[in-house]
Simulated assay, not measured.
Amino acid sequence: MRDSPYEVLDERFRRLFNPTAHVETLATGCRWAEGPAYFPAGRYLVWSDIPNDRMMRYDECSGTAAVFRQPSNNSNGNTLDRAGRLVTCEHRARRVTRTEFDGSITVLADRYDGRRLNSPNDVVVRSDGSIWFTDPTYGIDSDYEGGRAESEIGRSHVYRIDPQTGELSIVADDFIKPNGLAFSPDETRLYVSDTGRTHDDRHPAHIRVFDVRNEKSLSGGEVFADCTAGLFDGFRIDEGARIWSSAEDGVHCIATDGTLIGKIRVPETVANVCFGGPLRNRLYICGTTSLYSVYLFDNGTRTF
């Protein structure tokens, strides 16, 4: 019997996947695939290939992949805003940008209090239009994913861009290396991963959870889940409030109580994931060199 990619650790996971649905390799040839973002209107996915300084595009209808943008300023995380425009974290330019409908680029944030950001990493847009992003130092730690430089800020924070004023504010300042982030379905909670262990074995490899106060600030921040295989990098949250997170051995599914209930094994270290397809039940997976996907059952797994 062919080995299954699914590992059930809790019976709650069993109803979420179809045992006959296999993990498919859609494209390969990347150096570090990251930042997938799905465009429903065009049925295509854009993702970053950071060291190759390019963004890629996968066409869901034709099943083909091609370069979307090159150079890309060593782009990393991507998402869509409420109007369907692409919002991108750029390592090399140390900024967050928006791609307008005519293809022009608008800079949304590149400095805080007059000092350049480190290297914005991952980004999410709330329903009020505010943009939340993480800013660790991975893009300035070396020339591989950006350009080596000293941090002007001296720390790695989580930021919020105000939708009316464009003002940039720090919403969390006690991370080592803040990385992936996502809101709960009702947007009352924000989950943020800390991948500080890349720099020191004593540092975190977990996801924390915050309460969103007055739509502009955070409270709490307790550890929600520890990673059991490598690091939690990028992740998404489904309509049932479960987390589907990247990890060293594939994708980890974490229940609302913080329990790891199952895994989808992938042959490469996973950096990020994204839901797509007309029913949002197709999980796109950015592995190290490749883009993968797998179809899930529609049991509250659909998400934007």
Rank of each mutant, 00 (worst) to 15 (best):
G146M: 11
S169E: 07
D122F: 08
S156A: 11
E268I: 10
R69H: 14
M56T: 06
S62L: 11
Y6A: 00
T137K: 15
S75K: 03
V67D: 08
T79F: 09
W244V: 02
N272A: 09
A241I: 05
G84S: 08
L283I: 02
S142I: 04
S75H: 02
L117A: 12
A33F: 06
D194F: 04
A247E: 15
F210N: 05
D211K: 05
R69D: 11
T165Q: 02
D173A: 04
G103M: 08
V23Y: 00
H206Q: 13
A205C: 13
F133A: 00
E60S: 00
V158W: 06
S193E: 04
C61N: 15
A66F: 12
V294N: 12
E90Q: 12
L279H: 15
D141A: 14
S62I: 10
A109R: 11
T79E: 06
N52L: 09
I207R: 02
R280P: 02
D233K: 05
L291T: 13
H199G: 12
A225P: 03
I161V: 12
N214F: 03
V8D: 01
D238I: 08
T88C: 11
S246C: 14
A65K: 02
S245I: 03
V158C: 10
T228L: 01
W47Q: 09
R12H: 06
K216R: 15
H252C: 08
A255L: 07
E222F: 01
R15P: 10
G77P: 12
D201Y: 13
G166E: 03
D238H: 07
R126S: 05
Y58K: 02
S119Y: 10
F183A: 08
G154N: 01
A93I: 00
I176G: 11
R197T: 13
D257Q: 07
P204F: 13
P19A: 08
H203Y: 15
I131Y: 02
R15H: 14
G154P: 02
G139F: 12
E222M: 03
C89H: 09
I264Y: 08
H199A: 14
I131G: 07
R95Y: 04
E11D: 14
T301G: 13
T289L: 12
G300C: 04
P5A: 07
G166I: 01
I176F: 06
N214C: 05
G146S: 05
I264K: 10
K216L: 13
E215S: 13
S169N: 03
I170R: 04
A93L: 12
D141R: 15
T25D: 10
V223K: 06
L291C: 10
G146K: 10
G139M: 07
N214W: 01
D10L: 03
S293D: 07
R242H: 14
F175R: 08
I254W: 06
Y6I: 04
R213H: 09
A182L: 01
L117D: 04
R116H: 09
E268C: 06
T301V: 13
Q70E: 14
S169F: 00
D102S: 05
L108W: 01
Y284H: 09
I170C: 00
T288A: 09
V171W: 02
D162Y: 05
N281V: 13
R43D: 13
V67E: 13
